[in-house]
Design a binder for these strands. Sequence first.
DNA 1: CCCATTAATTGATATGTATCATAAAACAAT
DNA 2: ATTGTTTTATGATACATATCAATTAATGGG
Lengths: 223, 223
Amino acid sequence: MDRHQFSKFSNWFDSLTEEQWKKLSSNTVCITYNKGETICKQGSFANTIFFVAKGVQKIYKEYHGQNLIVKFSQKGEMVGLSSMYNSNIQQYTVASVCESVLYAFNVDIVKEIIRANADFAEHIISCLNAEQEEIMERTLSLTQKQLHGRLADAVIYLARRIYRSDNFTLQVTRRDMADFCGTSTESAIRILKEFHDDKIIQVEGKHLKIISNELLERLSEIG
Amino acid sequence: MDRHQFSKFSNWFDSLTEEQWKKLSSNTVCITYNKGETICKQGSFANTIFFVAKGVQKIYKEYHGQNLIVKFSQKGEMVGLSSMYNSNIQQYTVASVCESVLYAFNVDIVKEIIRANADFAEHIISCLNAEQEEIMERTLSLTQKQLHGRLADAVIYLARRIYRSDNFTLQVTRRDMADFCGTSTESAIRILKEFHDDKIIQVEGKHLKIISNELLERLSEIG
DNA sequence: CCCATTAATTGATATGTATCATAAAACAAT
DNA sequence: ATTGTTTTATGATACATATCAATTAATGGG
């Protein structure tokens, strides 16, 4: 494993000493997942911290046959940090929404480095803080806004944070959109169509284009 | 400040060296808050980590004049950890629901100790993990269950985690109960009355007694 | 102790969203 | 191509919960 490769993805690894990097990388495997494959499963043992090199994944809670998608992860992100010190049980199920490449780190070695390297430990805490902030933002959207606001939030989220463009191809299904907005598939479809008819976005199958960011933001704002 | 006093509250401080403890405690103040007083405010600078010595506090998000209570904190808990590395902005508003006593630590010194003391750092990460798990449990309740399930969850939460009894005096208002369940005050009142009429709980003003834990759990389960 | 304010309660009504049913379209496998 | 399966779509209906309105009860300050 080439350290330079990793630095391109993120500054996660910059704080590691040569020795720490060596130990980490010699216990790491690289795995390719196909679209739809499960990467890790809520409730199972968490021996692994993942680092995303390619693709988009959905991170979700399974509950009574329903899924609540908490976030989508992508290149440069660590996945599994929040299950590290929770009796080693995975809090979330992670699944690939397209072909993905992930590096699987051994959690014990990550923990070891946390203890030995203050910069790295700070980095981890900082990530956990950011993750919690993101989750709360979502929780607020899900609980305080009605459907139009929630769908607007979802579209904004995907455009800004995941695809970094106002014009992108959805790799997720309408069902996923619904699970991300805490609603039914039918309702999600209806609202998206409404947005389309109102010329706020343009949806044709999997293709989505934002026409008016202003209107989307207004919808997000008024809930 | 007597170190023994603190060890009674929690094992938070056991990992500190004498010197670290001295530095921390010499920069700490103890504050008493009356019922209803705001302890810290969402959006303000987070220079402080609080340690609860007495009382119950509500931790909530303010959003468009509405409040969403994320959790209640109590004796032995640290408050503010999740805002530590988030550009130092308070993520939550914290208010006292009864007379409370809190110690206010300087966040820079806490950070300093995190860097110097691996056990302490692990403890912090572990707390953040637990906090996120708790938040997700709540988010799941709020988004996937309907009112009966959510109110049942709230009653169970208060009985088990806060008051540690099936028979307690609510220090929070019905409005707070509603804000904890993401509903309107009227709906919260109605459901609680329903529980009362169905002999699941007994509510008389501020006094609440659980009659059937089994039924409460069933309600929580079926959502 | 009384008045003002806030909290708790109850009923009637409105509304957002889920659910059910059904169909068309897209996709995958043989 | 053909078939089965999943995804997307749309309409009709049911229902949970918010909102509005009005009343009573509790609380706290002067």
